[in-house]
Nucleic acid binder design. Structure first.
Lengths: 209, 209, 209, 209
DNA sequence: CAATAATCGAGACGGTACGTCACGTCTTCTT
DNA sequence: AAGAAGACGTGACGTACCGTCTCGATTATTG
């Protein structure tokens, strides 16, 4: 490495004024505020820039489109809540995580998640960004845990980890998106309790048709 | 009253030129075509009207916004596929229905569903229309079937029918919306086979926490 | 009068419902009211019909465009004031007529005249209608009077009647349209008094250059 | 203060991109072209913008409505025109001027004058602008000349200069607006020759009624 | 007295232009 | 070079009227 001097790992920076951290934060804050006020669709870069006291071009310089901006804002808002609880039995970790998610989904952040997925339905790059910045990081860890549990015999190994995760989280996302029924703790518990036993080793659920 | 004679059931129509069925159909057709081409967000009333050979005002006269228009188009496209298969054991009916839905979800119609739910995330009236015209009619029938099955002892009765349906359909909707993994028949089967046994009578999965 | 029998000069009327005089009057009344409220430009057939309690098609059936309608309304409003005062010396008749016109021009009816001429500047058919229904009928009579006066030796005969009329009325129309100075009786008198002597026989004003 | 140095008279300009002079000129040119083609009524901002190769919003940014735009175009079209020829006898100057005006009135500029007066009939601000930018500058000089001629005894002094000018120019404007007869040189001569003698000193035309 | 025919009010039709809004880019001066 | 400001060309929005049309209902004349 050492491009710049002894042990410098700092990313090379060209000449010119460096980007303003103040502006970046103002934009993120403005975005979070406005998306809670008006939702994703009615969120305009124009308004974000105005409220942040920032030029429109500054926004476009750093985020290529509304979705990346919103996801960045969202990620920055939930950064610290993301870690999977990685102690104890795997299934209990999942249960804990599900309850935490339900809580997030009920908060304004849940509306942002919903709104981003929603926007992703007609703008593939949004969905792609959502998967990359949100779904995959979490799945990676969850898959790893499930595999460990399969190897240790805690859960059966003839089921696809992704399918298992869809069983746990699908109902939660469904209620988040459709809002046809409350996304409360009893519901989360019931979902977990239904799916859990089937994952136990030697449950024998194979053989469709 | 009987102004008209015995049994006059003639649908009363107000004065003025009646609305043009031809125009209505042209608009619906144009909408379906365009939404498959460009998605919900980039669908413009302007383009719908132009392609239908219809004035913009005619579209606005009959559908208050893009969402109602798209839902009307969607409903008209799947009208005949909506009926729940109501013969045989309830669980098998559900399995059949799940497979049919997965098939629809994989078709262009699936994109419409996704896109409408997506738009609903930032426009409540869209989501409301989606629930009223799409979710509820189906749930009504499904709930009735589940209750019958509970009474007949086919499935346990200590589970909320809506929760049960969310368990079956949540994972399908999740893959429809997130597209992180294929929504194929093996997946549908696995979901069904995982959830099915827990619904059987005397499965005893209650009492978390 | 023998409307139907021998020697009927009454216009033959075919079968079918005859036009409604009530509707005609309502439209004219509505037009006069609205044109005084909003002027010619903002007058819409739609509003005229609505206020008259009449179908739009009924208006279009009888008047081909807004201008014809407005002129008809205007003519019907001033009908009785149109006759040229045909007694006494020709020049005095003209003086009388000028004073009467100035009075009309100062009233709301003057605004209608101005507005119609105005609209005629960008819509030839309006100007044409104005000339046919308004200018020409008056000029016809005035020209006839002037010719009589020429023959009787009251005024010189080496001047074009239309030019003479333009000399009398041009200044009045100018003040109607430009509004740069009042169109009052002293002004009318002065115009008349300036032009009058030149028309007298043996005034000898020919031969410019 | 003196931040800039002694005598800094640099026109302060705010931040932001300055307005495009090129766009301004293109819009004015396009307006003039189109108003000659289709008149005021059928002049659309849409077409003006399109022909100028400019966004509609740019037009609306600088001119609040069609009237202001037309006024600006009109003013820019006539600003270099028409100084009064001020040599020789006053009456001959007027004669010259009348002939020049007749010529202008027959040209495309005449159509613009007519069109602007026409539009002014339903939009007072246009008429006001017309008087300020067209009528008044010319009247000012003409009035001055007439007063000089009155003082020098060239013409009688018991007549209002504005009335005299209306007598000369009223017939010309009348034919410009009504188009009921040609606005040719013979006509101009006849008008001039009729009015001229009456203005001569000691003509004695006073005493109306 | 029925058939025919033109009218009526109502209001939907395919259009066009409106004036507004946000887009994403650009051009200026300032930091 | 990045910043705020704000003008630029673009294009869709939802609305208002245009002039035409299609209804059912009415009111005449004609056979």
């Amino acid at each position: 490495m050492a491009t710049q001097g002894a042990g410098s790992v700092v990313a090379k920076r060209g000449p010119g004024r460096p980007r303003s951290e103040k502006a970046r934060k103002a934009v993120i804050r403005s975005t979070l505020h406005l998306i809670n006020q008006v939702g994703f669709n009615d969120l305009t870069i124009e308004a974000v820039a105005a409220r942040a006291g920032v030029g429109k071009a500054t926004v476009y310089r750093w985020w290529p489109n509304k979705a990346e901006l919103v996801i960045a804002a969202f990620v920055s808002a939930v950064e610290e809540e993301l870690r999977f609880p990685s102690t104890g039995p795997v299934l209990e970790s999942i249960h804990e995580q599900m309850k935490r998610w339900a809580q997030i989904f009920r908060s304004p952040l849940g509306q942002i998640v919903a709104t981003v997925i929603g926007a992703g339905q007609s703008q593939p790059e949004i969905l792609e960004a959502f998967r990359r910045h949100w779904i995959e990081p979490r799945r990676l860890e969850a898959r790893r845990l499930l595999r460990q549990a399969m190897e240790s015999g805690e859960i059966r190994s003839d089921i696809d980890p992704d399918t298992a995760l869809d069983l746990f989280y699908g109902p939660l996302y469904l209620r988040l998106m459709i809002r046809h029924a409350p996304l409360d703790t009893p519901f989360v518990n019931e979902v977990f309790n239904v799916v859990k036993p089937v994952l136990r080793a030697n449950s024998g659920s194979s053989g469709s048709e």
